[in-house]
Amino acid sequence: MIEDLWLIGIGTGSPGHVTGEGMQALRDAATILVPHKGAGKDDLAELRRRIIAASGTAARIITFDYPVRDPDLPYIERVDAWHDQIAARWQAALGPGGADGPVALLVWGDPSLYDSTMRIAARLPAPPQVRVVPGITAIQALTAAHAIPLNTINGPVQITTGRRLRDHGWPEDAETIVVMLDGECSFRNLDPKGVTIWWGAFLGMPEQVLHHGALADAADPIEAMRKAARAEHGWIMDIYLLRRR
């Protein structure tokens, strides 16, 4: 049983993206759960371990294997079943005795932004008291890396996913779009006229790669850079911002 669950945002994997409050939470936690996401992604767990080590915590570290989504199920049903499995694995990792004190999970980006950890916590048989410690978001890391403002003067910003951009196109009345969770370079489906893109992967890490320019010119280089980076590291976390002139 988990009575207190602390969700600590760790940015895009750089220890510098964890706030002072986040580091203190790691030191105060009794147990820290670290997921393993399968072959080729061992460095994701290693990045979490580096952050944990940098905090100087004496917490008990427990690893668990991440479940795999069932590709035969419809998308919403697939995610729903996957979340149930993750919650079950948290409990199984802690064992029959449960947790003796707060349990911490390190969350990529920010626990409130396109992350389901809070929803997964609600699926536990006895939902815990959840504490959220935000970190640097991927959006902050992207705009900082390119040294650009998120918005134009008095201009709106829409945050969306690659799936929605691919299925529905450019959102109506949107001027600036931030696109997350896009594994298929969905900007390829847009009319590039008048659109500028700022793209980044592994933000804040030594492996960071960036590119920007008019979408018509930048689409091919970004897709090639993304493919090469993923092949080299076995995984990729990227994000991009689109703006219409």
Rank of each mutant, 00 (worst) to 15 (best):
V157R: 10
L94E: 09
I148Q: 12
R89P: 04
L113C: 00
P128Y: 04
A104K: 01
A141E: 10
V132R: 04
G95Y: 00
D110Y: 11
L150M: 14
H83S: 07
D80T: 14
P156F: 05
I148D: 07
S116E: 06
R123E: 02
P71W: 01
R60C: 09
R131S: 03
D115S: 07
L113M: 13
G95D: 02
T143Q: 05
L94Q: 10
I61K: 01
T152A: 06
A92N: 07
I159G: 02
A92C: 01
A92S: 13
D84R: 15
D80I: 10
Y114T: 03
D70M: 13
W90A: 06
G56W: 08
V133D: 00
R119I: 09
H168L: 10
R78C: 12
R78F: 04
Y66Q: 09
A138Q: 05
I148S: 05
H83F: 12
P134V: 08
S112D: 15
P149V: 04
E77H: 06
I139D: 00
L113S: 01
D100N: 14
A88D: 11
R119P: 00
G155Q: 11
R131A: 09
P156Y: 02
H168D: 12
I61E: 14
F64W: 13
I120N: 07
A121N: 06
I61A: 07
R123M: 03
T137L: 10
L105K: 04
I148N: 09
A53S: 12
G56Y: 10
A138W: 08
L106S: 02
S55C: 04
D84G: 11
N151S: 15
M118A: 09
G98H: 10
V107Q: 04
Q129A: 14
Q129D: 05
V79D: 07
M118G: 01
M118V: 11
S55N: 08
A58V: 02
P74N: 05
V107A: 09
A59S: 15
I148P: 00
D115V: 04
G56L: 13
A99S: 13
D72R: 02
Y114I: 06
D72Y: 01
A99F: 07
V103W: 03
W108S: 03
